[in-house]
Design a protein around this nucleic acid. Structure first.
Lengths: 148, 148
DNA sequence: GTATTTGCAAAAGCTTTGCTGCAAC
DNA sequence: GTTGCAGCAAAGCTTTTGCAAATAC
C-alpha cells in the first residue's frame, strides 16, 4: 500500500466535518490510517484492542459505516479471495484498482491515468455522477506465472 | 440487460465441457440465461421453483459455484445496494461495467472499448493474467440528477 | 451398477441491532 | 446537563456443509 501521502488524513477530515472524536474513533482511525495491508473488520478490531482492550467489534463496524458515509474509506471485496469479508482502506484523491492473485493470494494495487479517464468517460457518456467505485481483477500474478 | 446475443449459451457450454446436465441444472441454466434483470440466489431459486417445485436453495448455490468455476457466469455486488447479496449474470465476450444509483436503486450497464483497453494495459504493465474482473460505480444516475 | 448430485436441516461467517450505561462537549 | 456513543449479547442474513436418498449415465 504505497503513496501514503495522497491518502486523506482521517482525523483531520473528521474534525473538519465536526464529527465527534471519541476515544474509540481515535484509536480506529489511527489503525486504519497507518495500516500496511488491507484489513478486514476483525483485523482492525484486533489491532485496535492493542490500544484499547475494551474495544468492541460492533464499534468497529459502526465506525467503518461512519467513515464510509463520509467517503473517507473505501470498502473492497478483493474478489472474495478469503470468503465474504470486506476490507477497508483510506480513500485517495486518485483512484486505483486491485489485482487479486488466485494462486498466491497476494493483492496488488495499480494506479493509472487510464482509469481516471474511464471514469470521466462514464460520467460524460452516461450522465452518471460517480460517488464511489471499485475495480478489481482476479487472475494470476507475474510471480506465479513465472513460477509455473 | 441488452445484447443477449453475445452472452454465452450456458447449456451448450456445459455440454461442450462434458458437465452432467441434471434436471436442476437445466432449470437453473434456463432461468439465468433468460433473466431480464440481475438476480440474486433467492430470486433464481424462486423462479426455478416455478419449473421444479422441489428445487432447493442449496442446489442453486452449488450450481452457481459450478458455473462460476467454468467462467460462465459473473458474480456482482452491485455496490451492496440491498445488503450483502450477490447477483449473477451470464458472462460475455466483451466485458462491461455496472452503474448503481444510490437514489433510485437502478442498475445500468455500460460497455466501452476503453474498459477493454484498460484490461490490456493492466495485463501488459503488471504481467497479470486476468481471469475475471468487476468494475462497479455507485452514484447518482442521469434521471435522478435531472429530477433533483 | 457406480459415481454424482440433490434435498434437507443444521451450521457457519460476517454484519447489524436493541438496550442500558457511559462519555463527550 | 444533554446528546450521542460504546459495550454486550442476541439476532439477522447470506452462504456453506454433512449426510442419506435419489438420479444420471
Amino acid at each position: 500500500m504505497p503513496d501514503l501521502a495522497q491518502r486523506y488524513d482521517l482525523r483531520a477530515e473528521l474534525a473538519r466535518r465536526g464529527v465527534r472524536l471519541t476515544r474509540q474513533r481515535r484509536v480506529l482511525v489511527e489503525v486504519i490510517q497507518h495500516a500496511t495491508r488491507h484489513l478486514d473488520a476483525e483485523a482492525l478490531w484486533r489491532q485496535g484492542q492493542a490500544r484499547d482492550a475494551n474495544l468492541n467489534l460492533a464499534t468497529v463496524y459502526r465506525t467503518l459505516a461512519l467513515l464510509k458515509q463520509h467517503g473517507l474509506v473505501d470498502e473492497l471485496d478483493l474478489m472474495h479471495l478469503e470468503g465474504e469479508k470486506h476490507y477497508y482502506e483510506v480513500s485517495r484523491a486518485q483512484s486505483h484498482l486491485h489485482l487479486a492473485c488466485f494462486r498466491c493470494g497476494r493483492i496488488e494495487e495499480f494506479q493509472t491515468e487510464e482509469f481516471e479517464k474511464l471514469q470521466q468517460l462514464v460520467e460524460q457518456t452516461c450522465g452518471f455522477a460517480i460517488k464511489t467505485g471499485r475495480l478489481e481483477f482476479g487472475g494470476v500474478c507475474r510471480q506465479c506465472r513465472e513460477r509455473a
